[in-house]
């Protein structure tokens, strides 16, 4: 279980997180929604230790993430970045098998390549993509390669940062279905950040809305439409009028 208690983070005078409390149960899919610049990515990166929070505690299975042994801690995670974050200098298969080619999870090169091709197939890409470089792929293919990399080492916890941003509706649907399928199949705990309400309904078991630096609402996705929270209602219906100011 991932638990955040009273997490604060500021960048200079900009107080992004102002006391976030959130729990993500093991094996569930939590989607964090909220407007642009509300600190969703900061929240996700704080859990991973990519951003150091100023105060509060973040624990994974009861252990504080700031004191955990880094390699063992990170080995439990996979992450799909918003832009894919594929390494330009490496061919696709080496991107996917990055973890399997070095460090504690190192495998023989041929085996790592085989696993990479299998993971590429898993996300709907043909084996001949393996030897291409990221710059030769479309945005949707890069996203799928990023997804293949995130699941290559079969992590217990997977983070998805805006998995469908910049994709057409059909490709978004493909990615959403893949995420749901992979999370269910692997039994992984998932935490996703998105603005896309179609993704929320496709991926989430639970939803949390981040607004004003705190969790404005959290609950099962099935209760989202009947929450009665004006902030959440405005967000999910995309209304310009409401408690959330359009100009922030």
């Amino acid at each position: 279980m991932i638990r955040l208690e009273g997490v604060h983070k500021a960048f200079g005078s900009n107080r992004v997180l102002r006391g976030v409390d959130l729990e993500i149960a093991k094996g569930t899919s939590m989607v964090i929604i909220g407007g642009s610049g509300t600190g969703k990515s900061v929240l996700l990166k704080s859990v991973l230790g990519l951003v150091r929070h100023d105060s509060g505690t973040i624990t994974l299975d009861g252990q504080d993430v700031t004191t955990a042994e880094r390699d063992a801690f990170l080995a439990r995670f996979g992450m799909l970045f918003q832009g894919g974050a594929l390494f330009d200098s490496l061919p696709v298969w080496q991107n996917v098998a990055f973890r399997l080619l070095r460090g504690s999870l190192k495998r023989p090169k041929a085996e790592a390549r085989e696993i990479a091709i299998e993971k590429l197939r898993r996300v709907g890409l043909k084996p001949d993509v393996a030897d291409l470089y990221p710059a030769e792929l479309s945005g949707g293919m890069q996203k799928r390669v990023g997804l293949a990399r995130a699941i290559a080492a079969e992590p217990e916890i997977i983070f998805f940062d805006e998995p469908t941003t910049g994709l057409d509706p059909i490709m978004s649907g493909v990615i959403n279905a893949l995420i749901r399928e992979i999370v269910t199949e692997m039994g992984a705990t998932a935490m996703t950040i998105t603005h896309d309400m179609t993704s929320v309904r496709a991926i989430a078991d639970n939803v949390a809305m981040l607004h004003g630096g705190v969790i404005q609402w959290a609950g099962p996705v099935a209760q989202m439409d009947a929450s009665g929270d004006p902030h959440l209602d405005q967000f999910i219906h995309g209304r310009a009028e409401g408690p959330i100011e359009a100009v922030r």
Partner: peptide, 17 residues
């Protein structure tokens, strides 16, 4: 710098590197 702005450095960290 390009790796940093495209989150490749963050990706390295998440891949235990």
């Amino acid at each position: 710098a390009t790796m940093k702005v495209t989150e490749q450095i963050d990706a390295l960290v998440t891949l235990s590197t």
